[in-house]
Amino acid sequence: MSNSGKYLKIFAFSYLVFLYAPSLLLPIFSFNKSQVIAFPLTGFSFQWFETLLYQDSLHQALKNSLIVAISSCILATILGTLASRATTRYDFKGKQVSLTFILAPLILPEIIVGVSLLIVLIQLGITLNVWSVILGHTLLLTPFSIIIMNSAFNNLDISLEEASMDLGENQFGTFYRVILPLVLPGIIASLLIGFTLSLDEFIIAFFLTGTDTTLPVYIWSQFRFPKKLPTTMALGTILLIVSLILLSLSEYFRRRTSRSNNSILEE
């Protein structure tokens, strides 16, 4: 047993190296002086980060991405919260089928979601802009929000709601004073994860973006120019750090929901 444990440990660490290898290149080469992405390294430099400051099309793409990410994470969290509350609190006909349907974008190939949305928008003669991307992203993010909100609502003991009603609060007061504060960490986690996913999403944005390029679509266009690689690496590094911060925050909030609600049951 201890022998197999040792082999497992060696495997686990090698696998971890494999998982980290690509992402570690990002910071390494974004601070590397040479324009060529290759070993050996040539020296430390901030120049690639500096060039980021002077690219107007990047700034425009960033602005579009922020608009898309903020709007779609708010919309998806509203939809996800409604769906999650309905399905965790009430039992009714058609619940499972419709929930599975709403969750489908989680597993459907993105290209099919993107192409079919594009077909409809073209048929309706709607001009592609940030709003078409926002709608597509909301569709994509809602399932994630549902999963996060489900764990928040499942941790919510129904007797807390009943206690509030029993102590004289109406439904609105109960929602505002008991339910909302207890699921708020879940809502924040859902917003942060949605924001991060939207900021990184490429396929839907690629199909629905029109002229309002988002950040990943901009990065995609930069891949064609080998000279711009280090700059793209620098951009990737910044995005990685931002994602890390946002997702650590969301993890913190997600854990807070389960902890504070669970403590009632722990004696």
Binding site: L19, P22, S23, F202, P216, T232, G236, L240
Partner: peptide, 11 residues
Amino acid sequence: ITIPFWTSYLI
């Protein structure tokens, strides 16, 4: 395990 996947899929 999840940290490396916080880089965007595209990158």
